[in-house]
């Protein structure tokens, strides 16, 4: 970035120190250490372009959920519904594309499918946001409810049997496609991270997101329409889930009814590992993108160590509680020291 005005040196150095001391850097460091460990343990197996790329593609959907969740959690709320909304949007998207030619459908069908997936996510976000803001039901309960509704609806509409009516062009050019040599799912996730990061850290809306999470009453008195901010946040989170649903269809060619049950939890862990406080007020999207890969790398490495991959769920659960505990202790220290 070039600017004409000179940067005062002291604040710049302080800002740099702050970045280096941040949770996101700690997470990135942890990730590098774990990756170095697996590279040493499995030379020529872990640190291959193919393995890393597959890993990134596998976790690109969770990154999309994580971007939305970062916004929600920065505003001191939860969204437990994104995993179920992802599957529900897969179902509606496949139904729409199935009616437009199924596997033989063209780009028109794909675009409609994308619109239906995004629309489903936005609708779910609107319902979540509206109930949280207007009915004043706590977000954890509202989204637990919509999780159940979306999951139930997905099973009711399919009878519990996966649908496969995904256009071949979508599988070939999006799920398996490449842009500039990079798999499309990675590019989509990277774009989402870039845009999300810009909005949360550089814009007025990002500022309002932090303010509502840190002290909602102060934000309200400052003239911020905190209800509108909250609904917009759930729309963002819902859109992320819808887009993740579309990308999942493109990759697997199936509604994958049973495959995303842990996505929500994994995304949540990524958000928390990435330095977003569970108590709101601070969050970074880039941190989330890094944080999401810690459970990813762990499960990848566990498979190579020929440990049952199910161990990752046990590890994820324990790490989640530990990270939140550390965040809590840090917060307590800061407020009492003031």
């Amino acid at each position: 970035m070039t600017t004409t005005r000179p940067t005062p040196p002291a604040p710049a150095r302080l800002a740099l120190r702050r970045v280096l001391a941040s949770q996101a850097m700690l997470t990135a460091g942890t990730l590098l250490v774990v990756m170095a460990l697996f590279t040493a343990l499995f030379p020529g197996k872990f640190a291959t372009l193919y393995n890393i790329q597959t890993l990134m593609v596998d976790y690109s959907g969770i990154v999309l959920l994580g971007v939305g969740l970062t916004f929600i959690m920065t505003s001191a709320r939860f969204d437990l519904s994104v995993g179920a909304v992802l599957v529900f949007s897969c179902v509606l998207g496949t139904k729409a594309m199935g009616a437009l030619g199924g596997a033989d459908g063209g780009w028109g069908a794909v675009l409609i499918g994308l619109a239906v997936c995004l629309g489903t996510g936005l609708l779910a976000g609107l319902v979540n946001g509206f109930l949280i803001v207007k009915a004043r039901v706590p977000s954890i309960i509202v989204t637990l409810g919509t999780l159940s509704v979306a999951q139930g609806a997905a099973y009711v509409l399919t009878g519990g049997v996966d649908l496969y009516a995904v256009p071949k062009v979508m599988l070939d050019h999006i799920g398996q496609g490449k842009v500039l040599g990079l798999p499309v799912p990675i590019v989509v996730a990277a774009l989402a991270v870039a845009i999300g990061s810009f909005v949360l850290s550089q814009t007025r809306f990002g500022q309002y997101t932090c303010a509502t999470g840190s002290n909602a009453e102060a934000a309200r008195r400052a003239g911020i329409n905190i209800d509108r901010v909250a609904i917009t946040l759930y729309l963002i989170s819902g859109a992320g889930a819808g887009l993740a649903g579309f990308m999942s269809l493109a990759r697997y060619g199936s509604t994958t009814l049973a495959a995303h049950q842990n996505d929500n939890l994994t995304a949540l862990l990524g958000v928390v590992l990435g330095g977003t406080s569970l108590f709101g007020g601070t969050g970074t999207v880039v941190g989330t993108a890094v944080g999401v890969f810690i459970p990813g790398v762990l499960s990848n490495g566990l498979v190579m160590m020929q440990v049952l991959p199910y161990w990752q769920y046990i590890i994820v659960g324990i790490v989640l509680i530990a990270v939140v505990y550390i965040d809590l202790v840090k917060r307590r220290g800061r407020t009492e020291g003031g």
Partner: peptide, 28 residues
């Protein structure tokens, strides 16, 4: 009525932020 997770300038300008000139400002 301060926002504890923001710095002083974030608090001073809360709800009355100064935006960049031009297109970037229009993006918020």
């Amino acid at each position: 009525a301060l926002v504890p997770d923001m710095d002083p300038s974030g608090n001073l300008f809360l709800g009355r932020e100064i935006l960049r000139p031009g297109l970037l400002g229009r993006l918020g």
